[in-house]
């Protein structure tokens, strides 16, 4: 599965994760180990999906699915979109 991170989260825009079927929560853990930065603080709040980062799997917001328990499959594309408000 391919994970796309915006520059404000991590300098490499695209990261490949080798896994068959994992939850978003597990993906965040693997991703954090891979990039050497704990993304859990950013993505998880009080055991739930943080309100200021949105996780999309193949264009669908996991907030509308099962949040951190949403399944990511091999070949899926995951995008992280931070909430920005500047203007």
């Amino acid at each position: 599965m391919k994970v796309r991170l915006p520059a404000s989260i991590y300098r490499d825009a695209e990261i490949e994760i080798d896994a068959d079927e994992i939850t978003v929560e597990e993906l965040v853990k693997i991703l954090s180990e891979k990039i050497g930065r704990d993304l859990r603080k950013l993505i998880i709040r009080n055991g739930d999906l943080s309100p200021f980062v949105n996780v999309f799997i193949n264009g669908k917001n996991v907030r509308h699915e099962k949040g951190l328990k949403t399944i990511v499959k091999k070949g899926d594309e995951v995008s992280l979109v931070p909430a920005v408000a500047g203007g």
Binding site: A7, G59, K60, V81
Partner: peptide, 23 residues
């Protein structure tokens, strides 16, 4: 029903589907 997120530093263009949600 979509959001374009662009990182102009890396020319990374992401068109993300956003669905109208019942809740």
């Amino acid at each position: 029903n979509k959001l374009l997120y662009v990182d102009l530093l890396h020319n990374d263009f992401n068109l993300i589907e956003i669905s109208k949600h019942p809740s």
